[in-house]
């Protein structure tokens, strides 16, 4: 069975944050809340020199989702295709998932008192479209939908 996830090659990422804005324009998360977030990491290397990479924080659509386990309101579900969906309409605002997620992939919207995370643009995947951030916006071509076979025209054949 297909299991969907975002495949991101961070070694190629330039940190341009286009994916963040593509996600925002599609999913309309409020100011300050990012369902995908580009962060900087500057570790010192053993030879004394510096590295500098960008890390993309986002939901990993875990096989065993801790967030789902933790949720007190059954607002998080794992679909048959692996996409872990947080339904904001059901979210009770307990923030249990926020602490449960090891990847810190869930943000809490204080104004609306709901948790938000990347639902892998399942509304697009279900229509045969790619998630907004993975739809050829990235200049490094480093984000793609894993688990889908794409034709050159971009149609996803491997539908759920």
């Amino acid at each position: 069975m297909t299991r969907y996830d975002l495949g991101i090659d961070e070694d190629l990422c330039w940190g341009c944050k286009t994916c963040e804005v593509a996600c925002k324009t599609e999913n309309g998360a409020p100011y300050g809340i990012k369902l995908i977030a580009v962060g900087e990491e500057r570790p010192a290397l053993p030879d004394g020199s510096l590295s500098f990479v960008f890390r993309l924080s986002r939901c990993r659509h875990c096989e065993v989702p801790d967030c789902m386990e933790a949720c007190n309101f059954d607002a998080i579900e794992q679909r048959r295709d692996g996409i872990v969906v947080l339904d904001q309409a059901v979210c009770g605002g307990c923030e249990a998932c926020v602490t449960a997620c090891l990847y810190r992939a869930i943000t809490f919207d204080r104004a609306e008192r709901v948790a938000m995370k990347c639902n892998l643009c399942h509304h697009r995947i279900d229509q045969g479209l790619l998630p907004a951030c993975a739809d050829n916006v990235c200049q490094a071509h480093c984000i793609r939908l894993v688990g889908a076979a794409a034709s050159p025209e971009g149609e996803i054949h491997d539908r759920v």
């Binding site: 341009c16 739809d135 050829n136 200049q139």
Partner: peptide, 25 residues
């Protein structure tokens, strides 16, 4: 409603930057 890159364009091959995506805003 939305701006995306043109995959056929020889300059950007369909990719974009944040400013272009935000053009309607």
């Amino acid at each position: 409603e939305k701006v995306t890159g043109d995959p056929d364009c020889p300059i950007n091959h369909g990719t974009m930057c944040s400013k272009g995506l935000a053009a309607p805003r």
